[in-house]
Design a protein around this nucleic acid. Structure first.
Lengths: 230, 230
DNA sequence: TCAGATATTATGTATGCACATATTATCACG
DNA sequence: CGTGATAATATGTGCATACATAATATCTGA
């Protein structure tokens, strides 16, 4: 007897949804019925449906049954690039250059973002990332050295601040946002573009437990495109 | 005896990784050992570890065991917003206005993107999305009416093209990209911003099976920020 | 010593069962 | 006619077991 895998069941159900057999909002058969239909255990159907629910195609409720989502939650998975890997995977040579590195008490705006006391200083770093010696992205970052004192001793010539932090303070939570901004004089000079060029900006804050670790702004070269998959 | 859920095990393992007990790249105990340690079945540990692997924190290989990822794949989940919901959830009144709607043979650039034969025409729609009567986003879209003939009869005053398509042609694949562009005269006029303003652009193509359904460009008002969660 | 066959092992997953839980449907009672 | 208690039900999840599979480790023979 051939085994019926959860992949098969998942694919079969997906097909029946896509073909329109089960329309938008429709209730689909119960796990037990599907298990009988496909000749497998309920646990197998459960896993198939659970994965479909995670992917946003189907909505499940106890006692309420499973139904096809009216407005599927299209969630794009977007792999946050480690810049070096992104550049190297495109076949270019990665290099980075630390422009500024200092420890000081942040100005009030940054201090509020960092959620620091007034008398605590933090590290400020500006880095230029290059692909084949051409500017690729300009990075501005505050690091909470009160939480991560080791950061003060890092050799930023060997490894970029971003990469060191990813390796050393992993698995932290954070938020991520994207926007478009006009290049000011500093950005234009760093990225080698015109003042007022449209620049793609990525902002990221990283928390470990309740402490903000770092707040970063990454400004990509003109024409940069962020790709994602649905 | 209290049951030990996969959530508990997952959290416990996560804690031991975050605390540094298991460092980057380290091999963590086998499922059977963890099952004994936490007093639960191997299936429970399996689910916990499988989910951690899906989230990119851990790398699993048959016979090779499970190890903490050196460079965690930070994947942001990015909920693609249906614009109306995005605006309404911010407490504003949504309204949309169809600027252009025509059926014609696309120019060569669009035709290639749409992957259509030379003699096939497609629908072109320009829509302005408004929040509290202020421009929110400007949408340009081609729809393959050869694949979706019903689209020709849709009342775009009642429901936007985007929303109709999401409701009617669900569960399709596609690609998604983001970039920053400078506003040209048309965009500036539509969005009520200055020419050369930095505009956040989202491009999306949608496929059903092997047929391209629609190709869309969404240009957000100046200052728009796309939020994501890690 | 080295290549190829073989054994070992950790994860992958299907199954049957039991029970938990949330929600809906039903029913009894004022 | 409502309203609150109660029953029914679909999903959620844990457990023990069995076997599959991929990758590594070991052994064997030239």
């Amino acid at each position: 007897m051939a085994v019926v895998s959860h992949r098969f069941v998942k694919g079969a159900i997906l097909g029946r949804i896509q073909s329109g057999e089960w329309g938008l909002g429709d209730l689909i058969p119960a796990e037990t019925d599907l298990a009988v239909h496909y000749g497998c255990a309920r646990a197998t159907v459960n896993r198939a449906l659970r994965e479909l629910a995670e992917e946003g195609l189907v909505l499940r409720k106890r006692k309420g049954g499973t139904r096809v989502r009216q407005m599927p939650v299209r969630q794009a998975k977007l792999a946050i690039p480690v810049i070096r890997e992104q550049i190297e995977s495109a076949g270019a040579v990665y290099r980075h250059h630390t422009i500024t590195r200092e420890v000081r008490v942040p100005d009030e705006v940054s201090r509020k973002k960092l959620n620091l006391r007034e008398d605590i200083s933090a590290a400020y770093i500006e880095t230029l990332h290059l692909a084949d010696n051409a500017p690729y992205a300009f990075e501005r970052r505050w690091v909470n050295v009160d939480a991560i004192p080791d950061f003060l001793n890092v050799d930023l010539a060997a490894v970029s601040a971003n990469e060191w932090l990813v390796r050393s303070v992993p698995f932290s939570l954070g938020s991520l946002s994207f926007c478009a901004i006009k290049a000011d004089a500093l950005i234009a000079k760093s990225l080698g573009c015109a003042v007022d060029a449209a620049i793609f900006s990525m902002n990221r804050t990283t928390w470990l437990d309740d402490r903000l670790i770092t707040d970063m702004e990454l400004l990509f070269r003109e024409g940069y495109i962020l790709q994602s998959v649905l």
